[in-house]
Design a protein around this nucleic acid. Structure first.
Lengths: 141, 141
DNA sequence: CATAAGGGTTCCCCTGACTGGAAGGTCAAG
DNA sequence: CTTGACCTTCCAGTCAGGGGAACCCTTATG
């Protein structure tokens, strides 16, 4: 299979597949004309990677997951740990976004959104942007 | 004020402040020794930027918000639009993360996490990674 | 006076995970 | 012969800074 076929069947862009080869995630063969020649097993790996990436795993996680996948003697605990840690990261990110969301949503509701200049959103940005007050240490100017 | 003072009072790292100057968000004066010399108004801008960034606005949004902030003839509608659009982006991101979270959380609960190799997580990655079936067009190998 | 500490400066490279584009080789069809 | 669809490599850019080198300025201390 050429890269285009693999791209269609895996759903990954050719650029991404080349990139994955670059960083050593797949190692397709080469045909006489220099084209990459993918085996079914390469396609399978790429699809695995695509799925893992779509669940938000980092490339580094993917590399480890792929190794574990290919290791018949793996302990599922190792896989579970990677996934749990990732879940924790996701939760943290969601919390962060929801905190922003709360503030923003409040401000947006307060703002008239007309052609007048008065704007609680800008007020908040400017005010909460209150500065710590004059500096005391390092008094040299 | 030197950059260190401004960093302390605005909560932004000196590196970030220099970067903001680089991309034209602030324009501090220079003292005779070549040091940046920040006015209170620069500090204010930087604090504004820090607050906007902490709410997740992109640098580009920040640039626009800053312009609007300094424009007495602004329409609050313009500000509101930026904030609303950002809110929409946040919601989309949260949804995306929650979708990942649902799948991952399910898989993690299914996985024994012991020293045996059987692992529903890997099974899912490998299986959902099912390929589209043989390619029909572009049949040249 | 020398020097050390603790500011500051510019400059360049690095990050993650790709994406875009240029310049050029290969292959089958019309 | 040429067109068009593939493929190749390589370089540069993205976003928002962070790390670190090499060097300058100022003040305090021995």
């Amino acid at each position: 299979m050429n890269i285009g076929d693999v791209a269609r069947r895996s759903g990954l862009p050719p650029k991404t597949i080349r990139y994955y080869e670059d960083i050593g995630l797949v190692s397709p063969l080469r045909s006489g004309n220099g084209y990459r020649s993918f085996r079914e097993s390469d396609l399978h790996k790429l699809a695995f990677l695509g799925r893992a990436r779509s669940l938000g795993f980092t490339i580094d996680d993917c590399r480890t997951l792929l190794k574990l996948y290919e290791d018949d003697g793996r302990a599922s605990a190792d896989v579970k740990k990677i996934a749990s840690d990732h879940l924790t990261r996701i939760d943290a990110k969601v919390e962060e976004l929801l905190a922003m969301r709360r503030t923003l949503s409040h401000l947006v509701h307060e703002c008239a959104g007309d052609n007048r200049p008065d704007c609680p959103i800008l007020d908040d940005l400017a005010a909460s942007a209150s500065v710590d007050g004059p500096v005391e240490k390092s008094v040299h100017r």
